[in-house]
Design a protein around this nucleic acid. Sequence first.
DNA 1: CAACGTTGATAAAACGGTTTCTCAAGCATC
DNA 2: GATGCTTGAGAAACCGTTTTATCAACGTTG
Lengths: 346, 346
Amino acid sequence: MAKAERIRIYDVARVAGVSVATASKALNDTGRMTEQTRERVKQTAAALGFRPNAMARALTQQRSFTIGLLTNDTYGRFTLPVMAGVAEALVDQGVSVFLCGIEDDAALGQIHVDAMRDKQVDGIIAAGKRIDRRLPVDLSNLAIPVVYVFTEGPEDAITLVSDDEQGAREAVEWLVQLGRKRVVHITGPASFASVAAREAAYRDVVGAGAQVLNGPWSEAWGHEAVARLWDGAGPHPDGIFCGNDQIARGVVDALRERGVDVPVDVSVVGFDNWEIVAAATRPPLSTVDMNLKEMGREAGRLILQLAEGKAVSAGIRKLPCKLLVRQSCGSALRASHSNGEARLGI
Amino acid sequence: MAKAERIRIYDVARVAGVSVATASKALNDTGRMTEQTRERVKQTAAALGFRPNAMARALTQQRSFTIGLLTNDTYGRFTLPVMAGVAEALVDQGVSVFLCGIEDDAALGQIHVDAMRDKQVDGIIAAGKRIDRRLPVDLSNLAIPVVYVFTEGPEDAITLVSDDEQGAREAVEWLVQLGRKRVVHITGPASFASVAAREAAYRDVVGAGAQVLNGPWSEAWGHEAVARLWDGAGPHPDGIFCGNDQIARGVVDALRERGVDVPVDVSVVGFDNWEIVAAATRPPLSTVDMNLKEMGREAGRLILQLAEGKAVSAGIRKLPCKLLVRQSCGSALRASHSNGEARLGI
DNA sequence: CAACGTTGATAAAACGGTTTCTCAAGCATC
DNA sequence: GATGCTTGAGAAACCGTTTTATCAACGTTG
């Protein structure tokens, strides 16, 4: 039952009674011919189930309708949503995506980059998990367009990152508007650029009395930070802005174990909107969503433009984050409901 | 600085002073010629940095050195490790992987399958998240080899799944060997085939006194199940085998909140080894690892053989699981340490 | 020395499309 | 009626490889 032979344009031309050249032009809406001929060829092709061989087409057109997605984010925390967005933006154009995970292995990275070049990809999207770290490959003079997402690129690169400062600002302002007077910031290692950006926004909003605790990106650190805050002297916080959802979950769990009510006594907001963590926290975590999928879509659009030869201005583009309000920061007067979750527009 | 022109085999031939045909054969180790000529061509190619155009090559060879990975597992819980294994098995052979996420959208699936056909993929790996559900696409008469991983395929398909029964058996036997007398099973919805398989193994090991609680695959269900067991009449369990890590985490959290000590009073084992959940649980969760990466490697090997025209016997292949002992089931006499974790061989 | 294998290398034909060039026919213009 | 322009279509070149068929040169053999 399997169809062994694929239909070639040669077959279409023969059946439609035209030359191969005419058939090609008819199907691609190029060249000149009577509308009647064009239509006849198209119908013949459809009837025969003709699909052009992408390899042959790529050979002449110098376009493979293929792009490479290079990433060192094996676990997929950041890359998967990005990937989904990229694919979504490109599938309509018939562009497929090579996924290449390279860990932090420069040699493996080179292998994949070489493979991409051999396969004539129209562009490469380099995606990472830190905006202040580079992938272990050099893509700078490649004759192929490159877009950097969530990773550091060369000076004159086209780079997409989330607007950490804006996202953090929204989160902290939300806590303040809820009436919280003592908001502290429990976050990751100070060496991360995003930690600095979020901290800066936090400090800017709360002004005097800011307190920042740095530690690892783990639930355990959330527990420990709560211990420090509650076991130490001085008044306890009534609002906690966490650097990511894992820390936030640790914080919420620790507070519950101490009998501190979230969100009645303390409001907690996370960062990342990692569903598996944020949604399973009790109560579900309000958090800042980085719109990774939209970043992927934008990356897809950009790489497509570049592949088509259009110019795209270089530089770093910060895409806005969105505060996602769940139950961990208290009943919010301003929250408008949708799908059981309240979203605060950007 | 960017190299505009790519080196073609034509250039290599000219510089080496041979014909294109000879150059091709020299580089592919085919044909006949003096070893001297072959070496000269190879060195010329290396010096010029020649890399063959994969499109052109695919056109003649009828092999694109490309495979498609089709999946409906958007979150990547199952697919990402599989993907990593597939890529690992294929990268040496110069084979690249198209990743195509299709949710449960049949139309989208068809688009991706068509795109793969157009791009002449040498094979398709269909990966899912349930062994008893099919992807919403028909790959049965495609003239392209297909391997099914963690999803249901046609009767005569080549299918890879984890050996749930064996994994569950190891987990429950481990609990029994630790001296646990009342082991219950808290698991997912009975409609899942893997739930049935794990339950069967559990019942087989514990014999009379088996108790199974079905619910959703969530932490919340873990909490609720513990409430039922501890608030109800009768003796409390001293061992709990959970259907997945999320349930297990809910169970462990619930027990801690009740003051029940894990692992002193109760031993808990999960299933899946979803690191983000299992490792963050306090104490870290013993769990059954499904060896997804190895499944991916095996899928890669199989699709490669099929692409090369070799025959592969059809049928369902169950790959063994591995019990991963952490701290949630108590000090294990038999546990041998490695990397701070004890692994029990299969 | 004629017939015959081998050997090393090349010319040319694929592969399946796209694109450029050429050309005959039809028609308007002067 | 000769000239020129437009239109519709096809022949052929091309993209960059691989592969097949061909062939000259060179022993070997009878």
